[in-house]
Design a protein around this nucleic acid. Structure first.
Length: 886
DNA sequence: GACCTGCTGCGGTATG
């Protein structure tokens, strides 16, 4: 290690950790790799330390600081981060560290460390074009935009080191795929540029939190080739200690069996907030954060001004202000969503509170890490259950953290929409010289995402980029690439048809798509944030709703903007609902829950949480049985509503949504039934007006893994799902004209055009590979097909236990509530509650269990009873398969 | 006896 750095470390009393030194050494040897470490253990230092050491070495060897590697000026180091805010923070610490080792300035020429994100001014971008910095901190999207400029490609040829921060955040997303493609491009440029000429091949280092599949993380980061073979995995040796505390509800007997809001726990949470100087309160949803924020201030008006709210729909200025206040230690508490999972380099907050299930082990660790965000400090988190079963989830999550059962992040492959975008980006960046399709194909194939790409697939993507594929050939707008034959070599190269297309393409670079939302402003025009169009559409002027921690009255809607004024002296307001995906319980956490339940089944209630839920679990045991590994519990219940079956595979909500449709379909194929359905993270419910009696053998057939694909296609409206999924694909692949920044575009128009493309392709170009991709994405993302298949295979090996139960069991109750909620969602809340209680009394009181069992054994129900069930007019319409998005 | 939810992230241009 160079002296200046060593001195600086000594002055601060730091001794570099072994993993940091290992990274520096590997970096010095020209190797690539992945640094895996928990947040707050110094992994960024591991990455930039290597860079700085190398730069100091170069300087000692007499090379200038800026440029001149191999005689060429250019960007020598690239630092990618998934967030603009992180880019800013990284920039600050890098500049500071460069100062430590005397790289601040040299001969009047500063060692350039610069930022480039969407926030970067055009003046700065122009300067970077004319005079590239030595180190550039940027995002994957900005890197992609850079690759669309011929000049910037020249600068990138000097790159010798790339750091990809928070790689786990990108892995498993299309942003990750885009990063892979960009890295392959930079690698290609560097091989022919100064970095290569310099003798040192381009190194790539990923920085990541713990992931369950490091091998794949490395594959995706480095692609194929020599750098992968010599790749290093450096795991932090810094012991990070976690403390998980669970707030146990006082009156557990009265603690709800279902629900996710948790306001009941307000008082103990308030006590915690008051006991610490600064607290982050994580909630799972934006509206939950609004509700909690309101409730906290209502209960403690003295905290007004000291508590803030932060989530993704709030205006960026508002969020930035909140972040600054947290950094300045001016707030007691911030109620937030994942928006503060990472991204802001806080001084460690005193305390982190998690309201409700984190749904995954990694997320819990991530959030805990926001406290004690320094090597050697304990990170602790206070977990607040919102329903009784979450006590089990928290206990299970803690076990999983201790045994390091962390979720895997599967890298995506063959995302053709991203490839189509990348092809055009590359063409833009190739300028008048044009792009060679063969060279690009070979380069793309070095990525993990497209390693298995066939010539046919690439050819199709090229054709699509060139002229919009078969169906759109006639439209000039999609004639985007022009062939240019080199007269001497006869080689075909591709050039972008015209300059406006280049500009338009740059506008659309990126893989993040979001539902267009309506801006919410005050009368004065101050922007508060955005709310989904559908919510505002339900309101009329004068209506009051809660947003951004305020009560607002809708004045009017004008040009995609909801203009509001403060609503004073109003007690209640609707909390906006945003469209979003429901995060399913992760596989890892679900498995840990099963283990906990098995232990409980054996009488082990060792932890405080398990002791607290004991009465509930014992009730479940007494009335039915506890689901656990190796056992599939199915409950039969007859109520006034009809005939219920509750099944508990514990495979996460998405899988259960698929399974319930599948089970209904297969049962109905045996004999006609109409089912109502519901699904949760624990299991699913089928409800029919007519009895459906299945023994263990029959259930085995209904839940067989064989013919899964065929039957699933039979019961799920895949075409419609794919049609919706296509929106994202159409956007990324460049079919939809992007709107200029700041210009809102209504959800309807966006959807209309993507659906139009979908229909046109379906009819005139059925071989269009983007259609196939939409179907595949539906299977993988919305149905979690792989997990569903594994769940069914596991069920095939399980013992099936069928219990006829007298009333809704603790595990059944949440499912029942969920179904009612979805069916009655248009009714007023009060009516709903009244009805539910009515139902509950029925379910619990009037139906005798033996009768049900007897009747089922007899295979038929007396006609009188059947008529009786129907006479109350509660015939349930079949609930169509739905995914509440859009 | 019990019920009011639904994440995050990015991106364009520019002369004198």
């Amino acid at each position: 290690m160079i002296d200046a750095l060593r001195r600086e470390f000594a002055r601060r009393g730091w001794e570099p950790f072994a993993f940091q030194k290992a990274t520096w050494d590997a970096y010095g040897r020209g190797e690539s790799g992945l640094v895996q470490a928990q947040t707050g253990t110094g992994k960024t230092l591991a990455a930039w330390g290597g860079m700085l050491i190398e730069e100091c070495g170069r300087r000692e060897a007499g090379e200038g600081v800026r440029g001149k590697a191999g005689g060429k000026t250019g960007i020598r180091y690239l630092w990618l981060t998934p967030m603009r805010a992180l880019a800013g923070d990284t920039h600050k610490s890098l500049v500071e560290a460069a100062g430590w080792v005397g790289l601040g300035a040299e001969g009047g020429e500063a060692f350039g460390i610069e930022l480039r994100t969407g926030d970067t001014s055009s003046a700065m971008k122009v300067r970077q074009r004319d005079k590239p910095p030595a180190v550039l901190i940027t995002t994957p999207e900005s890197l992609s935009v850079m690759l669309s400029y011929p000049v910037m490609r020249e600068h990138l040829a000097a790159v010798r080191g790339v750091v990809v921060d928070e790689w786990h955040e990108l892995l498993g997303t299309k942003r990750g795929v885009q990063t892979e493609l960009c890295l392959a491009a930079v690698r290609g440029l560097a091989a022919g540029g100064a970095g290569g000429a310099d003798g040192a091949a381009m190194r790539v280092w990923g920085l990541s939190a713990t992931v369950g599949n490091t091998g794949q993380a490395l594959d995706a980061l480095l692609g194929s080739g020599p750098q992968r073979e010599r790749a290093r995995l450096v795991t932090s040796d810094v012991g990070k200690e976690y403390r998980f505390e669970v707030l146990i509800p006082e009156a557990i007997e009265r603690f709800p069996w279902a629900g996710h809001l948790g306001i009941r726990m307000l008082e103990p949470v308030l006590a915690r907030i008051e006991s610490a100087a600064s607290t982050l309160v994580f909630t799972n949803t934006r509206s939950q954060s609004e509700i909690w924020f309101q409730s906290i201030l209502r209960a403690r008006p003295d905290l007004i001004g000291q508590v803030a709210i932060h989530h993704g729909s709030l205006d960026r200025d508002v969020r930035t202000r909140v972040e600054e206040m947290v950094k300045g230690g001016k707030l007691r508490a911030v109620v937030c969503t994942s928006s503060l999972d990472l991204g802001v380099d806080f001084p460690p907050v005193d305390q982190v509170i998690q309201i409700g299930s984190p749904k995954g082990v990694a997320r819990l660790v991530q959030r805990a890490g926001r406290s004690g965000h320094q090597p050697g400090r304990v990170s602790s988190i206070v977990c607040v259950p919102t329903n009784a079963l979450e006590l089990v989830e928290f206990a299970a999550a803690r076990d999983a953290v201790m045994s390091r059962e962390i979720e895997t992040r599967e890298a995506l492959t063959m995302s053709l929409d991203v490839l189509c975008q990348h092809i055009l980006t590359t063409a833009c960046g190739s300028g008048p010289e044009g792009m060679s399709a063969e060279a690009l194909r070979d380069e793309v194939r070095t990525t993990h995402a497209f390693a298995g790409m066939s010539d046919e697939q690439f050819g199709w993507a090229m054709d699509f980029a060139r002229q919009g594929g078969q169906a759109l050939t006639a439209y000039g707008r999609f004639a985007r690439l022009v062939e240019r034959v080199d007269e001497q070599t006869g080689e075909v190269r591709y050039v972008v048809a015209n300059q406006p297309l280049v500009k338009l393409h740059r506008l659309g670079i990126g893989t993040i798509t979001s539902d267009p939302a309506m801006k919410v402003t005050t009368r004065g025009g101050a922007v508060l944030g955005t709310i989904e169009e559908g919510f505002i559409a339900k309101l009329s002027p004068g209506d009051v709703f809660v947003f951004s921690g305020r009560r607002l009255r809708l004045v009017k809607v004008h040009q995609m903007t909801a203009i509001t004024e403060p609503a004073l002296n109003v007690k209640s307001g609707m909390v906006p609902a945003w469209a979003g995906t429901r995060m399913p319980l992760s596989h890892e956490l679900a498995e840990a829950v099963k283990v906990k339940l098995a232990a409980a089944d054996g009488g082990d209630f060792a932890s405080a949480e398990m002791a607290a839920v004991r009465p509930l679990l014992e009730l479940q045991q007494a009335w039915s049985a506890l689901p656990k590994p190796g056992t599939l519990v199915i409950e039969r219940l007859r109520s006034r509503e009809g005939y219920h079956a509750f099944v508990y595979p514990l495979a996460g909500r998405l899988v259960h949504e698929g399974l319930v449709a599948l089970a209904a379909y297969r049962i109905a194929a045996r004999s006609p039934h109409t089912f109502s359905m519901s699904a949760s993270d624990y299991g699913f419910e089928l409800l029919s007006q007519t009895p459906f009696d299945l023994d263990a053998g029959a259930w085995r057939e209904v839940l067989a893994a064989e013919r899964l694909t065929e039957d699933l296609l039979g019961c799920v409206n895949q075409a419609e799902l794919a049609r919706r999924q296509f929106r994202e694909i159409a956007r990324i692949a460049g079919l939809i004209v992007p709107s200029y920044p700041g210009q809102a575009r209504s959800a309807r128009s966006l959807q209309a055009s993507s659906e139009l493309f979908f229909d046109v392709f379906s009819e005139f170009d059925p071989q269009n590979m983007l259609l196939g991709q939409a179907r595949r994405e539906v299977m993988e993302r919305q149905l979690e097909f792989g997990r569903m298949k594994r769940a069914l295979e596991a069920i095939g090996r399980m013992e099936i236990v069928i219990k006829a139960v007298p009333k809704l069991t603790p595990f059944a109750f949440p499912l029942w509530v969920d179904r009612l909620r979805s069916q009655l969602s248009s009714e007023k809340v009060e009516d709903r509650i009244a009805r539910m209680i009515g139902h509950l009394e029925d379910a619990a009181g009037t139906v005798a269990e033996p009768e049900f069992a007897d009747l089922q054994d007899a295979g038929e129900l007396p006609s009188k009873a059947r008529r009786g069930r129907r006479a109350d007019g509660k015939t349930k319409a079949k609930v169509p398969w739905r995914r509440p998005r859009l």
